[in-house]
Simulated scan of single mutants.
Amino acid sequence: MIMVSKHDSQDGNVESAASAPATVGVVGAGRMGAAFAGNLIEDGLSVVVFDRNRACAEAAVRGNAVATDDWAALAACDVIISMVPDDDAAKEVAAHLSTVLAKGAVHISMSTISPDAAGALFDLHREHGQGYVSAPVLGNPDLAKARRLYVLAAGEDATLARCMPLLERLGQRVFLLGEQPGLANAFKLAGNVLTAATMQSMGEVLAFLRKAGIDQKAAFDVLTESLFDGKVHKAYGGKIVDERYSPPGMTVPLAVKDLRLALSHAEKVGAPMPVASVVRDRLVAVSARGWDALDWSALGKLAAFSAGL
């Protein structure tokens, strides 16, 4: 059963700072990690921000928060949140954390990684007497800053219960998906497949309507104000119409990685995903055009290019 915890960020903090861990570490000070750190600092928590690039860590802190590029500086943290690009980075983070954190500390990985990698991280931390939770998110850095993310969480019940006051500070809803951490990661990959497929479809349809002589802004308005009024249609369709591909919420190479992970796990569990295969190839084609630095909604740019626009 999927359980849901709701939190309206506009109502303020979920609980007092005293209900959260005494010291929280954030590993990875990219746009998402920096947003997490900023919100936790705003809540008055004691925060340590780690990034290999110390300048990135320093840019993410203010007040009494600590910036570091030294793993040992995280030793006093009760809970660590990590947000890194892929399986290899997540495994490297866990390897360091497992040796510096105390027994009973918890590592919350909010990265988009494979279910198998999540299982490996859980096993590693368990060997060291530590907890592990997978909590990837649906949403972009702007939503992270506004605490409007959807958090997909999985892990042992007691560990999840301990982490809930923290997770509820970071998003508007927390979905509890079970005790196996990899379940949250499988769901995150599924969400990215559906988002990418929607962007591909929107790009194709908007290009078709432009070629047919219909203004694409008018086409977008009709589509999103009738049957196709979903958040993905509006947000990413708007990027396609306005050609707002930079700065990226997620770059094309990360999107290719996510589709690859989804297809690999789909093969493992015996679930054909033909549409996902096509969209993965389209993302590879976006990359081949030299558009790696763009947002993954550049699928719409490729559709327009393919239509001769």
Rank of each mutant, 00 (worst) to 15 (best):
E204I: 11
C163A: 14
T112I: 02
A196L: 03
M250K: 03
D242G: 10
K268W: 01
S287F: 08
L152A: 13
W296N: 10
D229E: 11
A17F: 01
A67M: 11
G237L: 06
D281K: 13
A34P: 06
T251M: 15
F122I: 00
A307Y: 12
T198K: 01
K188C: 02
T23D: 10
R147D: 10
I80F: 07
I81R: 04
R162E: 13
P141A: 12
A105H: 04
A105Y: 03
K103F: 02
L149Y: 02
D258I: 00
L149M: 14
A255L: 12
L227P: 06
L40E: 07
A34V: 11
V48H: 09
A196F: 06
A146T: 12
K217H: 13
A161P: 03
S306P: 00
K268S: 04
A276I: 00
I41T: 10
V84T: 07
A22V: 13
A95Y: 11
L299P: 06
A307F: 12
K188D: 02
F305A: 15
E204Q: 14
K301R: 15
G191D: 11
V279C: 07
G203S: 07
E179P: 11
N192I: 10
G119K: 05
D295N: 12
W71M: 07
G290Y: 01
E156N: 12
S297R: 04
F208R: 04
A158D: 14
A184T: 05
L152H: 06
D86Y: 05
D157L: 12
I2C: 00
V252K: 04
A218H: 13
F220H: 09
E156P: 09
S277R: 00
A65N: 05
